[in-house]
Write a protein that binds this DNA or RNA. Structure first.
Lengths: 266, 266
DNA sequence: GAGTGGTCTAGACCACCTA
DNA sequence: AGGTGGTCTAGACCACTCC
């Protein structure tokens, strides 16, 4: 497999390359507006990504690293901590800081279907079926945390890849949150429009299920009635905890599966 | 304005109760082995959960808070930061730290189906169908990051709630990771056994899809052939980045849906 | 015992927001 | 202009791990 003998022992004994052969050079630019800890974190992350810091290797203690860089220990710790939070490093008291035994690639973030597809080179397209304001039903009101009967924007879209239908999406948004121009909606994703409007997305609560397609759903998505569909409902919150979107979507299970990463919270 | 009008305006203007009427008392115990920042974080979290700190209310600036508690500012910051990471607080430069506009409940963590069901009062039960060692297929080896053909433990279980089958689970584990006693497996969940063995779970990469049940699957899960099934494959990693489990599971869509929360990574 | 990360302090200056 | 969080420093002592 790999060139370095990462493998050993059935148990767990951590094989540690004690002397990092090449101490690796890092440098910070004190005239830059970029925080020092962030500069260091980026350089460390780059070194890990590019394999200059091998998985399992020790980082060298914080105090010495701080001295070598001309930084204080708390600053170095802040850089290291940010990478620990990202899952790239592990700290062990009395042992040291090592590069994680890799395997875990970059965690998926909260992304829109549109971005996912585009990133996968799937050339997504959108058709807006509906874009209007109506009173919120009890379910929608509860999801968005607004009063039942108050106005919400209802959005219904069909998502295509390579000219084939792939998902039917129904979204509800608080009125006036962002301008919902049909042309814009057909050329980009909802999340991207929100971010562009200065909304900082923070988290989303999702529920994923499955069911068999009804006749109408089959027609809409070019599937036989009875075909498996993936269903998803999601409420998205911004960084102030305000619900900015609630959606119920259905996907053709034959063409789509959710990929995501869950993190254990301390 | 009035004193605590938390509600207002259709737009977004944050209505802030400038003077927190009752400054709220916090206290730390310096003789406790619990870190000071952690004590403070817990008290703040409790105050938020119990509504003593209203959503949207300001926390008071860090320096004053530090003074009132007899702590240094970095310590107070560490406490606050941990709650910001949890999504309970938002910091705004030049404004202050406020309690998130709630709505977001506690984020779901990486949990086992067993724990989920038990928490929901569903009295889960498990039947072990298979528990043996065999050579890893290419797919399993890739997921676990081990050599193809090397030994892995294969586990097949059926999960019941209220005496009804609910899911069929097939797991692969590195050999010798933990003792896999059948009796233990039938009385608890796999993750709980791992945690008890000192393994710190860190993250899991999942893929969720759907398909229609085959005849055999229908029989196993007491569904008609063609019924919608939810499929999930998951690789779980510990805090060193080592894959500790790979599983492919199928669930009766009529009885189960995944609930989870995604966070936006900075 | 030596070395590591974990915690904590008491200051400092800066950038940003509100007004 | 005043107040807030964001960053940074130069120390200190402790708890844990390993030899």
């Amino acid at each position: 497999m790999s060139e370095f003998p990462e493998i050993e022992t059935g148990g767990y004994a951590p094989p540690v390359s004690k002397a990092e052969s090449a101490p690796l050079e890092f440098e910070v630019d004190r005239s830059s507006p970029v925080p020092l800890y962030y500069q260091l974190a980026q350089q460390l992350e780059g070194a890990i990504e590019h394999g200059r810091l091998a998985p399992g290797s020790l980082l060298g203690n914080e105090i010495e690293l701080a001295g070598r860089l001309g930084l204080s220990r708390p600053t170095v710790r802040q850089a290291i901590q940010s990478l620990v939070d990202k899952g790239l490093l592990v700290r062990r008291r009395g042992v040291g800081t090592q590069v994680v035994h890799s395997q875990v690639k970059r965690p998926l973030e909260l992304s829109s279907l549109f971005d996912d597809l585009q990133a996968a080179g799937q050339s997504p397209a959108t058709q807006v079926l509906r874009n209007e304001t109506e009173p919120a039903t009890a379910q929608v009101a509860a999801a968005l945390g607004i009063a039942e009967g108050s106005d919400v924007v209802v959005l219904q879209r069909l998502r295509f890849t390579h000219g084939e239908p792939m998902a039917h999406m129904c979204n509800y948004l608080p009125p006036g949150l962002i301008p919902l121009d049909n042309a814009k909606l057909e050329s980009t994703g909802l999340y991207r429009m929100m971010r562009a409007a200065g909304i900082t997305l923070h988290s989303a609560r999702q529920s994923v299920g499955a069911r068999c397609a009804t006749e109408a759903e089959g027609e809409l998505l070019a599937e036989e009635p009875g075909a498996a569909l993936l269903t998803m409902s999601r409420t998205t919150y911004d960084d102030t905890g305000r619900a900015v979107e609630y959606g119920t979507h259905i996907y053709r299970a034959s063409r789509y599966a959710f990929e995501f990463q869950l993190l254990v919270r301390a």
